[in-house]
Computed example of a mutant assay.
Amino acid sequence: MSKIQSAKELLETYRQQSARLLPQPTYKKMVPEEEQMAELEHLKETIQYERFFFVVNLHTMELQHQHGVERWLGYKDKDFDFYTYLKLIHPAHVAAHNITSTTLIEGLMSGDWNIEFMKHRYITSAALQHKDGHYILCKRLACIFQYNDKNQLLEYINEFTVVGAYNGEPFSVRATNDQGEELQWLQDFLERTQRIFQEKNLFSFQELRILRKYAYHDQLSVADIAKAFKIQESSVITYHKRILEKANHLFSNKFSNAKQVAIVLKQQGLL
């Protein structure tokens, strides 16, 4: 059996990957800074809903734009670094995290894949240790935040949704009702949704942004969404139709509006 890497060893592995795949720090960044900042502002609105996030710079191995960490993990946002994050991963999840993360980053930094800002989404469970010692279970979404003109990943953003106390759950997805009974139809949906989110990018970038808005502000109108993203109301209506077409393709129970889709995806930590 291979030895599980410590946080220090894993950080060094990431650094070696970066040095090998990005030997020179000079490259053209493809995502405009104003687009990144706009996305961060939208994400900040969700912190009060048991969410936190940070950006990982793969060239420096430093964290940027940490928000919500102090509120939900107990560590001051400005002092929370990549090494600290790696140390907080529960021992039962470390091996799976290390293998999947290094393999995925290797692929995304190779330049062989066609990648896009905030579109490709990697979804896992993550048991993290709070500063006071207990572990919490989170849904983790990792998305592309910056890449260069050679299609190499430069930065990714980790978004976490707190699910609750960690009780030994494996690196997997579960679905139950309020009695703790497994709902097989929802379990099947979650597994299909994760595969599609990871492999086929079910929703477009703009559709995901609209869904996230509804997930945390379900009172918003079409006009509110149009104003928030500086698009026409007719465009919002078109996005609604596309969201419903895609979501209804996955469900036996049909949705009647985009807000219903957003609520279900939020409940499963997918937004």
Rank of each mutant, 00 (worst) to 15 (best):
K3W: 11
I4N: 01
Q5V: 09
Q5I: 07
A7Y: 10
K8H: 06
Y14S: 00
A19T: 03
P23Q: 07
T26E: 15
Y27P: 02
Y27K: 10
M30I: 02
A38H: 06
H42E: 11
L43Q: 13
L43G: 05
L43T: 05
R51N: 15
R51T: 13
F54W: 02
V56P: 02
N57A: 02
T60W: 09
M61W: 03
M61L: 14
M61P: 01
E62D: 05
E62R: 15
H67R: 10
G68A: 04
G74P: 04
D81M: 09
F82Y: 15
T84S: 06
L86S: 00
K87M: 08
P91F: 10
V94P: 01
T102P: 00
L104E: 07
L104V: 06
G107P: 04
D112K: 11
F117R: 10
M118E: 10
K119Q: 14
K119D: 09
K119A: 10
L128T: 04
D132N: 12
G133A: 11
I136E: 05
C143I: 08
Y156M: 12
I157N: 06
N158W: 05
F160M: 01
A165I: 08
F171M: 15
W185K: 04
L186A: 12
Q194A: 08
I196P: 01
Y214G: 13
Y216S: 11
Q219C: 03
Q219L: 02
L220A: 13
V222E: 09
V222H: 01
D224R: 00
F229Y: 15
I231R: 01
V236E: 11
V236I: 00
L244V: 08
L244W: 07
A247R: 02
N257R: 08
I263A: 15
I263Q: 15
V264I: 14
L265A: 10
Q268G: 15
Q268F: 13
